[in-house]
Amino acid sequence: MSKPVRKSIKLITVAGPPSSGKTSVILRTIEPMIARGFTIGVVKFDCLTSEDHHRYNEAGISVKKGLAGGLCPDHFFIANIDQALQWGKKSGFDLLVIESAGLCNRCSPHIREVLAVCVIDQLSGVHTPRKIGPMLKSADVVVLTKGDIVSQAEREVFAFRVRQVNARAAVLPVNGLTGQGNLLLQKHFQNAPTTSSLENYKLRFTMPAALCSYCLGETRIGQDCQIGNVKTMDFS
């Protein structure tokens, strides 16, 4: 069944550390929306391998997979994001969810004027919100997963510490297994702004930077081999 090409669609970036439950949260959130008549597609960005696209396929959701391989996943993501959006428009989606890898805590795929969601796992401990950088700090919605197996006290401390680093975001507990709590996230998805092209859009925060000899394939260790943007520690 071919759907009409769309001029602009709702775009959502979802980031979060590995195994925090991004795919489950997205699935549990978009399934009821699809049941209500939305057409939704997903682009999954990952690093080396990803089996998650099978989970989307099994749920009957159109999905594209992109593997960054040896590149920084964030840089790979941003070089492909507008094409992803064009694919979404061509496919006639109402809404396109971009799931990014979030491999290091310095990841920052969020784009201004595009709904930014960060998924973090409460099982990872109450110190986590302080360790995660821009992907949490610049998010519009912070989704807290795995709360069903963590004490209420830790859940409250966790939410408090998320607010400490990002007081503006909505903070929503969602259970990725049962979907409990997904209704409010659905509403945020539905209210997301629409986008026709990402040209001239800007990232909310600079991406992790590196341009040194190791980026270009250097494997030898030693001062003579470190050329370019290198940062050294002070051991004195």
């Binding site: 099982l123 069903d148 963590v150």
Partner: peptide, 21 residues
């Protein structure tokens, strides 16, 4: 306020819950 998640109405005590820290 509802969408912001500021007001968590329900605290849970379940057998599955653990102290993680």
């Amino acid at each position: 306020k509802r969408l912001s998640g500021d007001q968590q109405l329900v605290a849970q005590l379940s057998q599955n819950m653990n102290f993680v820290i």
